Amino acid sequence: MTDQPAPRYQRVLLKLSGEALMGDQAFGIDPAIIFRLADDILALRAMGVEVAIVVGGGNIFRGEGLAKAGMDRVTGDQMGMLATVMNGLAMQDVLEQRGLEVRVMSALSIPAVCESFIRRRAIRHLEKGRIVILVGGTGNPFFTTDSGASLRAIEIQANIMIKATKVDGIYNADPVKDPAARRYDQLTYNAALDQRLGVMDATAIVLCRDQGMPMMVIDIHAPNNLVRAVMGEPVGTLVTA
Rank of each mutant, 00 (worst) to 15 (best):
G23M: 10
G23C: 02
G23A: 12
D24Q: 00
D24N: 15
D24Y: 04
D24C: 05
D24K: 13
Q25G: 14
A26M: 12
A26R: 09
F27S: 09
F27P: 07
G28N: 08
G28L: 07
I29L: 08
I29S: 10
I29P: 08
P31G: 06
A32I: 09
A32N: 12
I33L: 11
I33Q: 08
I34Y: 11
I34D: 01
I34T: 10
I34G: 00
F35Q: 15
R36I: 04
R36P: 01
R36F: 07
L37G: 02
L37I: 08
A38G: 15
D39C: 13
D40C: 13
D40L: 10
I41Q: 10
I41C: 01
L42E: 08
L42P: 06
L42S: 09
A43C: 07
A43Y: 03
A43L: 11
L44P: 05
L44V: 09
R45W: 03
A46Y: 04
A46H: 14
M47V: 07
M47Y: 00
G48L: 08
G48R: 11
V49T: 05
V49D: 01
V49K: 08
V49G: 01
V49L: 00
E50I: 02
E50D: 14
E50Y: 03
E50N: 09
V51M: 09
V51A: 02
V51N: 05
A52G: 13
A52K: 04
A52M: 08
I53D: 00
I53H: 05
I53T: 00
I53S: 01
I53Y: 00
I53R: 06
I53F: 10
V54G: 00
V54S: 03
V54Y: 01
V54E: 07
V55H: 03
V55L: 10
V55P: 10
V55F: 07
V55Q: 06
V55K: 07
V55E: 04
G56E: 05
G56Y: 04
G56S: 13
G56F: 01
